[in-house]
Amino acid sequence: MEARFDFSKVAGDGYKAMLGVHGYVQHSGLDLGLLELVKIRASQMNGCAFCLAMHIPLGRQHGVTEDQLNLLVAWREAPVFSDRERAALAWTESLTRLEGGDVPDAVYEQACAQFSTREIADLSFAVAEINAWNRLMVCSRTPPQLAPAQH
C-alpha cells in the first residue's frame, strides 16, 4: 500500500493540534499501559494497521502482557484483564461505535465504578484521540512502520 499523502506535510497546523491532544492524554495521569490497551482496541475496531504497529510495541513497553495483547479482541471472555481495564475497554468500544448515537448507561456506570469523573473525561479524550488518528491514517493510507524482521 502506498500513502496518499502525509498530514504532517500538507496540514501541519492540524497535525500539530493532534499532537497537542496526544500530549494532554499522555500527561493526564492515566496509566500508560491502560492507555495503550485503549488505543490498540480502538485501532483493531477501526482496522488501522499504522496505529496497531505503533501501539502494540508501546503497550509492551508500558506493561501490557503478551496474553493481554493476544486476547484483547476477545477481552470480555479473557481472564487476563482487571475490572478497571474492562471498564476502559467497554468505554472505548462504546465511544468508538456510538451505536444508536449514545453510550449506554450500563457502560457509564461500569466506568464510574472504576474511574473518577475526571478520569472518565481523560479516558474519553484518549478514545477520541486514537479514533481521530485511526481515521487520519486510514484515509491517507499511511502504511505501518514495521520492524526490520517483519519485512
Rank of each mutant, 00 (worst) to 15 (best):
M1Y: 09
M1Q: 10
E2V: 11
E2F: 07
A3L: 13
A3G: 15
R4F: 11
F5N: 14
F5A: 14
D6R: 11
S8T: 07
K9N: 13
K9W: 06
D13K: 13
G14W: 10
G14I: 12
A17N: 00
V25P: 06
Q26I: 12
Q26L: 14
L30D: 14
L30H: 15
D31R: 13
D31L: 08
G33I: 07
L34M: 09
L34E: 05
L35R: 03
L35Y: 07
E36Y: 07
E36Q: 09
L37W: 03
K39L: 01
I40R: 00
I40N: 01
R41S: 02
A42Y: 01
Q44P: 13
G47E: 05
G47F: 03
C48I: 03
A49K: 12
C51P: 15
L52R: 09
A53H: 12
M54H: 06
M54P: 03
I56R: 08
P57H: 12
P57K: 14
P57T: 13
R60L: 02
R60V: 08
H62A: 04
G63L: 02
V64N: 08
T65V: 04
T65H: 00
T65D: 02
T65A: 01
E66M: 01
E66D: 11
E66H: 04
D67L: 05
L71M: 13
L72S: 11
A74W: 04
A74Q: 13
R76M: 01
E77W: 00
A78T: 06
A78D: 08
P79Q: 07
V80G: 09
S82G: 01
R84Q: 05
E85C: 01
R86Q: 11
R86T: 07
A87G: 15
A88K: 05
L89P: 14
L89K: 13
L89C: 12
W91E: 15
T92H: 15
S94V: 06
S94Y: 10
R97W: 08
R97G: 08
L98V: 05
G100K: 00
G100I: 03
G101Q: 09
P104Y: 09
P104N: 10
Y108R: 14
E109S: 12
A111I: 01
C112A: 13
C112P: 11
C112N: 10
Q114K: 04
Q114T: 00
F115Y: 05
F115H: 05
F115M: 01
F115D: 04
S116Y: 01
T117Q: 03
R118Q: 01
E119T: 02
I120V: 06
I120R: 04
A121C: 06
S124W: 01
S124M: 01
F125H: 12
V127E: 10
A128Q: 04
A128K: 01
A128T: 04
I130P: 15
I130A: 12
I130Q: 13
I130V: 12
A132N: 04
W133H: 06
R135S: 14
M137Q: 05
M137N: 03
M137P: 06
T142S: 13
P144Q: 02
Q145K: 14
Q150N: 14
Q150D: 13
